[in-house]
Design a binder for these strands. Structure first.
Length: 276
DNA sequence: TGCCAGGCCTTCC
DNA sequence: GGAAGGCATGGC
């Protein structure tokens, strides 16, 4: 068991569209990460973390929720560049960028194209159930997301059975590219945002949006930013800017190296702010 | 029923 | 090089 300070917004962080495989019940959260199940409970000014695997728990939780980074400095910086974002930033205060596993993020965001969040989660859970390691934790069953090794013989039809639809061929191709070494996920850590974006986009089924999400959510490249329907909506309604090209130019000019974060705050504000 | 979803690829000008 | 159409699946 681990206790950490409850000094960020755990619920929004989990629930703001970065990750898909989680459960929320009141102040209890289940998050499925690479090699274990995390159970997080908010108790007053602490967050209590339990897991089926307790070794290195502190390091893993710190890394996953990006706890060593000072987000107040970043938010102040964004605010200085754009005062109009004050209410957006206030709404997302305490939101942290989750540091996800690149392989699962890659698969997840390929599935996300032209899809809805519940469907994406359903497909990922089916893949985990069919190919991932089974974990029993507190008398409940969970499945970890499979490693590449466990997916090495998967076919397009197998993917289709996980309800991924037309994305089956993309996923199959990507798995093969990793297997034969064309796609090296480790190499991306050392690349700058733009090079990494072009590298990922050279593979079939990965466009700008999907590549940006992978780089932002798995590699913490905050200068890369996914422009999706929600961000387009925000830009049109609040800034009167239309067209992806124009949004891209405006965003990078304005928010520079924190464009990805600014975009994530806008997304959260537009998608979750108007629904609740 | 018909439309659309945190897009991308292909085809066609 | 830019616009349109198709794509599996599920929810409304």
């Amino acid at each position: 068991m681990l206790k950490i300070k409850n000094n960020f917004d755990l619920k929004s962080t989990i629930n703001c569209g970065q990750i898909f495989r989680y459960e929320i019940n009141d102040n209890e959260f289940i998050v499925l990460i690479k090699d274990r199940v995390l159970l997080l409970k908010i108790v007053d000014d602490e967050i209590i973390v339990e897991s089926n695997k307790e070794d290195n728990l502190k390091e893993i939780v710190t890394d996953y929720f990006d706890l060593d980074r000072d987000y107040d400095i970043i938010i102040d910086d964004i605010l200085k560049r754009d005062e109009k974002l004050e209410s957006v930033l206030a709404f997302s205060k305490g939101l942290r960028m989750i540091h996800q596993d690149p392989f699962e993020t890659l698969i997840a965001y390929i599935i996300s194209q032209n899809n809805r969040v519940p469907s994406i989660a359903n497909s990922l859970n089916l893949i985990a159930k069919n190919y991932g390691e089974k974990i029993i934790f507190k008398e409940k069953t969970y499945y970890l997301f499979p490693t590449l090794e466990k997916l090495k013989d998967i076919t397009e039809e197998d993917f289709r059975e996980c309800k991924v639809g037309f994305r089956d061929k993309y996923l199959y191709g990507i798995i093969n590219s990793i297997k034969n070494g064309d796609l090296d996920l480790e190499k991306i850590y050392k690349m700058n945002g733009e090079d990494a974006l072009n590298y990922l986009m050279s593979f079939k089924g990965i466009g700008n949006k999907v590549a940006s999400c992978i780089l932002l959510f798995a590699y913490q490249k905050f200068d890369v930013y996914p422009i999706d329907t929600w961000v387009k909506k925000f830009m049109k309604e609040d800034y009167n800017i239309e067209g992806e090209k124009n949004i891209r130019k405006f965003t990078l000019d304005k928010y520079k190296e924190y464009s990805g974060l600014a975009i994530q705050y806008m997304f959260n504000y537009k998608r979750n702010g108007s629904n609740e």
